[in-house]
């Protein structure tokens, strides 16, 4: 559309507003050009930018995955041998009981008739 046509559209809409008595008291002369300037100054996402961002994001994801894998797998040591439970057969005894036993023996020797229940 040519510049003249756009200007005609603008004037036509001015006329419509005037006839309907629905218009502001003041109107900036360069209102639409200011807006168009702002729109054209806005950064646009081109295909190149889009694919660059996609490549950066996917490479970052791959590196993160590799790092996570490396850091977690090293904590485990796998083996082919079967794990068998072994019973601990070391002799155990209650040392405090042993001491008590010996005391009781002495006690029995000296006072065999006293307090048998304690030594049982």
């Amino acid at each position: 559309m040519s510049k003249n046509n756009i200007k005609d559209i603008e004037i036509l809409y001015f006329i419509k507003s005037f006839l309907k008595k629905d218009f502001p008291r003041f109107m900036p002369k360069d209102f639409s050009s200011k807006i168009m300037k702002k729109i054209n100054d806005q950064p646009r996402t081109t295909y190149f930018q889009f694919f660059t961002r996609l490549a950066i994001a996917s490479s970052f994801a791959v590196v993160t995955l590799i790092l996570v894998q490396v850091m977690t797998i090293d904590n485990y040591n796998y083996t082919n041998t079967t794990i068998s439970k072994t019973k601990i057969k070391a002799p155990t005894y209650n040392t405090s009981n042993q001491q008590l036993d010996s005391k009781c023996k002495d006690h029995n020797n000296k006072k065999a008739d006293l307090d048998d229940k304690k030594c049982e």
Binding site: D22, M27, M36, I39
Partner: peptide, 21 residues
């Protein structure tokens, strides 16, 4: 075609400024 938006602006600028006011 961003230029088409200029026509939209020209069509509605008075209404929108008036409404904002």
């Amino acid at each position: 075609n961003t230029n088409s938006f200029e026509i939209i602006v020209k069509k509605y600028q008075l209404k929108i400024i008036n409404l904002s006011y």
